[in-house]
């Protein structure tokens, strides 16, 4: 239909409620428009939740990250100056929160070597990687050894390595964007990813 007469019916509800692009949405939210804020959140919250859940493997923790992240966004949105993309700004907040929690967990993990499993308390050294992984019965059914091995490697990574790998491999983010989100250089993110792939290759290379 080439330049035909067009009637655009602007019905209310959700269909075409507002024609705001993201920056006007942000500006409106900055001015206190709750509805705009909510729409802004909805553009991103699914992927934020997915990332947090994937990294932390806990619904409660993921929910905490979600709340804290978007409450911070709400509180600090007036400081957003459009000098980076909103995605980058948001991911700085989210990745920081996740990194903090991952690091705390590492500390906890090193503090106690005995952990609870479905089969009773066991020494951590006997278990591979994330204990949640080893005690999840469904996981054992579906996956078998490869999955356990993957979880073991993921569990051994530093918080930062885990984050970079998650963002690159599972989220498909470019290293440059990852560097921006983590407040580091693309090169540093690349080195980090490089280390992880060496570890993965050693652990999985003979397995596939």
């Amino acid at each position: 239909m080439l330049n035909g007469d067009t009637r655009v019916a602007l019905t209310g509800q959700n269909r075409l409620a507002v024609n705001m692009d993201e920056s006007s949405l942000i500006r409106a939210a900055q001015a206190g428009d709750q509805d705009a804020f909510e729409r802004l959140v909805r553009g991103y919250d699914q992927s934020v939740l997915k990332l947090a859940y994937s990294l932390l493997r806990s619904a409660d923790d993921a929910q905490d990250i979600y709340q804290e992240a978007f409450l911070r966004v709400h509180k600090n949105l007036h400081q957003f100056r459009f000098d980076c993309s909103f995605h980058t700004w948001l991911y700085r907040i989210v990745t920081n929160l996740c990194l903090d929690l991952l690091r705390k967990r590492k500390v906890r993990k090193e503090e106690s070597s005995v952990v609870d499993t479905a089969e009773g308390p066991r020494d951590r050294a006997e278990l591979t990687g994330d204990t949640r992984a080893s005690i999840d019965p469904q996981r054992a059914l579906v996956s078998g050894q490869l999955r356990q091995r993957i979880d073991a490697v993921l569990g051994e990574l530093t918080a930062r390595e885990r984050m970079v790998f998650e963002l690159r491999h599972f989220e498909g983010m470019r290293l440059r964007a990852i560097g921006e989100a983590l407040g580091t250089s693309e090169e540093a993110a690349k080195n980090c990813l490089f280390r992880v792939t060496q570890k993965m290759r050693v652990a999985l290379g003979d397995f596939v």
């Binding site: 959140v41 909805r42 919250d45 699914q46 939740l49 997915k50 859940y53 994937s54 493997r57 619904a59 993921a62 929910q63 979600y66 709340q67 579906v142 996956s143 490869l146 999955r147 993957i150 979880d151 993921l154 491999h169 599972f170 993965m200 290759r201 999985l204 290379g205 397995f207 596939v208």
Partner: peptide, 23 residues
């Protein structure tokens, strides 16, 4: 092994997003 890593992906429980939004 890159493909094999797909085995390690997890999805958040279905109702989690709604819960988060309400909260």
């Amino acid at each position: 092994w890159h493909d094999g890593l797909a085995l390690a992906t997890v999805e958040p429980p279905a109702d989690l997003l709604v819960k988060c939004r309400q909260q």
